[in-house]
Structure formats: structure tokens, C-alpha cells
Design a protein around this nucleic acid. Sequence first.
DNA 1: CTACTTGCAAATAATTTGCATGCGA
DNA 2: TCGCATGCAAATTATTTGCAAGTAG
Lengths: 149, 149
Amino acid sequence: MQEKNILDQLRKNGYKITPQRQEILRTLQTDPRPQSAEDIYRKISAYYPNISLDTVYRNMAILQELGIVSKLNFQDGKNRFEINHADGHHHHHLVCIKCGDAKVVDLCPFKSLDKTKLAKEKKFEILGHSFEIFGHCAACRDKLGKHEI
Amino acid sequence: MQEKNILDQLRKNGYKITPQRQEILRTLQTDPRPQSAEDIYRKISAYYPNISLDTVYRNMAILQELGIVSKLNFQDGKNRFEINHADGHHHHHLVCIKCGDAKVVDLCPFKSLDKTKLAKEKKFEILGHSFEIFGHCAACRDKLGKHEI
DNA sequence: CTACTTGCAAATAATTTGCATGCGA
DNA sequence: TCGCATGCAAATTATTTGCAAGTAG
């Protein structure tokens, strides 16, 4: 998903290219890690004051609708967003349930599934999927061993 | 995960067998579909007045901690719970993003992954995973075709 | 008895929405 | 100009927590 394509896609769908929207996209492109609405809002606020958290939320909804970003759920009460690749290639994450850190796993177990067969069998139009692996990262595992229960 | 084992497991961990707790377990066992805390609360309230939503939440946390239930996220803002099988066998879901209905898919793409290798490579202790397939169920697909945008 | 539990009410936290104004195309 | 966008503030929703009273073991 390149800069240019995204803007065109927005225009094509009747959305305008506002500075806020551009900053949000830039933030998503600059940092490939999954970011919460709050994260995005805070980063942009640091240098660009004319943005509100509401705007971030509203834009994430639009971007997700257009398939420009993916919404991820790390089970900690807040959603995170990540920009999609233009070629459809995507990865998943190893999410630490202690510190929230997410490591990329460059594979997708969904790929090996026979989607067509499944869709037909279950009479279901498959549009997307979520897959996260939960556990402890090395740092938190060490900490747990030393201090906790 | 059978009735008896669950109660023993609770006792073993210092938890008491309260009527509320038993009703929650009964509700989870009676209806195998993923249910929200509110769903569980409402069902029990219908015939057993001495239960509060707080109690349901508190118990779901405990049951999840003990591995008796799984917490599922259907991207609609509320978590759902499902009782686990004793043999560790589990399934995933085709979740309709229109009506929220969840169809069981009796397979797990996570099984084919080399967890040991992945854990070693990423220095990560794998504890669990989430996997949901999103899309439209037959009913909603029809409705969409007829009435929507 | 006594520690775990519960119900109630109040507090959080994330996300959403109404509305008047602002601005991109 | 005109309709999409934004900021602000208020509202909503799911979930959590403090506390005093209740109860299982």
C-alpha cells in the first residue's frame, strides 16, 4: 500500500485529503508496529496541534473500511492499527500479555486453509481473519521468574 | 472439561463453590456458543435473581485464569466466553460482522505450526492464541444484496 | 471462624456521537 | 459553493473496583 495509491483510493471513495488524515497515514507508515488510536494521536500531537483523538478514531474507521489498515486486538482493552501492504501480504504477532510488546511473525496459518471449500461448506462469505499468538516475551519471562508468584 | 473436574479445580485453587458460580458454569455448559458477560448475566437472572453482572465478570476472569473458559473477541466491542474441552481440543469461528452470529469451524490452523521452533526463534513463551474468521453469513449476505448500498 | 464472594454504587477506559464551524475539491 | 471533516464536549458501552455485608468450608 503506497502513499500515492492510498490517497487515490481515498479520493475515489469521496474522502478528502486533509492534513490530519495525511498525518495519520504518515504515522502509520513511519512506524510499522501496531499502534492504538491514542498512540497515533499522541505522536501527531507532539508536532501538529490541530488534531483530536476523535478524528483519529473516525479516520481509523474509514481506513479500515477501505482495507488500508487492519484492526488488531491484543486482549488488553484497546484496539491497535497497522497499515496493510499493497500486495496483500500480511503477518501476525506474538503478543506479550505482560508488557504488550508485539513481535512480528512473518507467516499466516490462514493461508494453508482451503477458503473456497470452507466458504461453500459453511455458506459464508469470508472477508478477513484475525490471528494472534499470546504469551511472554523473553524479558517478561525473566522478570516473572524472579519476582512474581 | 467436565462438571466434576471444574469444581475440583476451583476448590484446589482456593475458590469456593457458590451458587452464582455454579449457575455461570451451567449456563456455559448448556449453551456451547460464545456468550458475552451480559448474555450470561441475563440468562441466569431470568430464573435466579441473586446474581449481578459484576459477579459474572469477576468469575469469567477466574475461569479464564484457570483455563476453564476462553475469551473470544468478535471485534464488536464486547468479549465472549466459551467453555473449554477437557482434552484440549478446540475450534474457531466464522463470525458474521453483520449479525454477530458465530459458526463453529472444527479446525485450528495453529496446530500445523511448529510452536517449539517458533518459540525458540523468537525467544517467546507461547501460551495461547486467538483466531477468528470474519465475513458475512448466508442470511446477511442475502439481506445486503437486497437492501444495502 | 475467616477468607473468599457477592451486590451495590461509583469509577474507569475506550470509543462514539451531536453539533456548529471549517476547509478541501 | 457544498459536502465531507474536524474539534469540542457530552454520551455510551464495556468492564473494573471499593466497600460493607454474606456465606462456603
